[in-house]
């Protein structure tokens, strides 16, 4: 093992009748870190997450999770990861507790262990008052809590979160990140998240990558990125905006050179 829980080499993906989403992504993510994946809309963040969590296939390139390759061994990989994509993935017709229990059983927990784990998650995510209600009847905030709880039932080693706090009120957002930090610190879960909220990346990420036009344009620590692009003591948002602006200017200069 290299100490990286995620390793990707040359991942590329072009959608049929669509743009090239990934143009050859190389990425290493160390064990037990909080990793922020940044980039503008259309930069390829969601495509990369979908490939890493085995929902989509890359046209070329390779990747592994905890040393297990995505190609050919995706069931083994799926046992190691938890995923909460941007849109909630819950069964609206099933009750909260039963849905969580089914999820646990699907991952091989026996009935007793599954029930025990579900009670723990119901308590941790504040779902107790709605545990016997159908998921379709829940408020938006509770649906998102259930969505994340479902991703955690089997105690994954890597948790993929795609824009996890979109639509959450500030209180829920704070509680959510408290739980993510606890998972990372106490259980060693690698929390890999995409976000458009740069203050979240700055506050809750310790490493980051910036995707631009389907490639990794920057890879390093959050503090290192902020300092490199907005000066000492600068914040991530200022650094990110400077970085994006300098990339755009470089691209325009390159285009003018080619045109000339």
């Amino acid at each position: 093992m290299s100490g990286n829980i995620i390793e990707a080499r040359g991942l590329a993906r072009t959608y049929r009748k669509g743009p090239r989403a990934l143009a050859g992504v190389d990425l290493d993510v160390p064990e037990a870190c909080r990793f922020a994946l940044l980039g503008a809309n259309g930069a390829g963040k969601s495509t990369l997450v979908r490939i890493l969590c085995t929902l989509s296939r890359a046209d070329s390139g390779s990747a592994s999770i905890a040393g297990r390759p995505l190609s050919g061994g995706s069931q083994a990989v799926r046992a190691l990861i938890g995923v909460a994509l941007q849109d909630t993935q819950i069964d609206p017709s099933e009750r909260v507790r039963r849905q969580l229990e089914f999820q646990g059983r699907l991952y091989g927990l026996d009935a007793a262990r599954s029930a025990e784990r579900v009670e723990e998650l119901v308590g941790r995510f504040g779902l107790g008052p709605v545990a016997d209600r159908k998921a379709g009847e829940l408020s938006g905030g509770n649906k998102r809590r259930l969505h994340v709880a479902l991703a955690l039932v089997h105690r994954p080693r890597v948790l993929f979160l795609d824009e996890p706090t979109v639509g959450m009120d500030p209180e829920s957002r704070a509680a959510f990140w408290t739980e993510m930090r606890r998972l990372n610190a106490e259980e060693g879960v690698c929390v890999f998240f995409t976000t458009q909220y740069l203050e979240e990346a700055e506050k809750h990420g310790d490493e980051l990558a910036v995707l631009d036009a389907g490639l990794v344009a920057y890879r390093g620590t959050v503090s290192g990125f902020a300092e490199a692009h907005s000066g000492p003591g600068g914040d991530l948002e200022a650094g990110y905006l400077n970085f994006v602006e300098s990339r755009r200017a470089a691209a325009e200069t390159a285009k003018e050179t080619v045109d000339a």
Partner: peptide, 11 residues
């Protein structure tokens, strides 16, 4: 509902 993707993530 998107739940199919959740099921598809199971091992």
């Amino acid at each position: 509902s998107g739940y199919f993707q959740r099921l598809a993530l199971a091992p």
